[in-house]
Write a protein that binds this DNA or RNA. Structure first.
Ligand SMILES: [Mn+2]
Ligand SMILES: [Mn+2]
Ligand SMILES: [Zn+2]
Ligand SMILES: [Zn+2]
Lengths: 146, 146
DNA sequence: AAAATAACGCAATTTTGTTGCGTTTATTTC
DNA sequence: GAAATAAACGCAACAAAATTGCGTTATTTT
């Protein structure tokens, strides 16, 4: 499922609904996520004007996560990645995602695997679950060939 | 399933079988993993003599992973964790684990969820998978109460 | 429009992980 | 089991990634 931004999405409105200030940068940041679904901090930096301060990026990402717009995607190469939330129930530290994410160990792109579902989360004795992630890593089509 | 070390496990032998040098520290490190299953780098540091150099720890962990003794466990708080491999097929960058891992966001302990299985890995069009991880995060019993 | 709140930029700092190189320890070969 | 070889170790320096404090600017609320 590819998200199409036909130019009619009102990013400022989405931010307002979630209680996020509508600054130039945050509108731009949300657009980035609607276009690409998953981004590492570095990718956000590269795709933003290099006039924007990295601290601002970190703080905006934290805010988006807190407000349930995006969620962290863990990975073994220890780079923070974020992906657009697909559930209205996401908020704060509560992010349970039922589809997998694939991370390419070469180009570092992250792909949402909409059709690859994680098992239904059940309460597990003694564990209070805030987030669920199914992570696949390896090489994407492009990077596998080289 | 709790792994019991009844004092009869020959860690040096296990290292030898995997082609890892039997140094004092590496024998100790393997014992740590047999006792606790999952450890962050920091936990390894704390549980080792503070005379041991951090570079040595990083290099030993890398070696263990390469030889298929342990594998990385990704997490959203961006701390490298390792867990004992449960399959003889693990080696190098190939680590597919069929059970979930729970990470406590407070005490940072990692727990193997032997009974919580990840879906059978299928080849996914365009993705060449090296590692699979099912990650649950939240609070453990102890930390939930406080 | 004024007051209050939140975001931003900059500089400094912290935390985490890495590299090179000389020394020590373990393994292999004889 | 001694010598040769290979691997592990420690140290110091470095690099990358993320965080903190604080004064300034922009956004939101009243
Ligand atoms: Mn989410
Ligand atoms: Mn493994
Ligand atoms: Zn790739
Ligand atoms: Zn805990």
């Amino acid at each position: 499922m590819k998200i199409q931004n036909d130019g009619n999405i009102d990013f400022a409105l989405i931010l307002a609904k979630k209680g996020v200030s509508k600054t130039k940068f945050r509108i731009h940041l949300l657009e980035l996520f609607y276009n690409k679904r998953s981004l590492s901090v570095k990718e956000v930096m590269n795709k933003s004007s290099n006039l924007i301060n990295k601290v601002t990026i970190y703080r905006a990402l934290e805010c988006f996560e807190e407000k349930g717009l995006i969620h962290k995607v863990p990975s073994i190469n220890n780079i923070i990645r974020y992906s657009l939330c697909n559930s209205d129930e996401c908020i704060g530290s509560l992010h349970k995602h039922n589809h997998g994410h694939f991370i390419c160990n070469n180009c570092n792109q992250t792909f949402c695997l909409e059709n690859y579902k994680s098992p239904d989360i059940k309460d597990i004795e003694g564990f209070y679950i805030n987030s669920l992630n199914l992570i696949l890593e390896g090489y994407c089509k492009d990077c596998h060939l080289n």
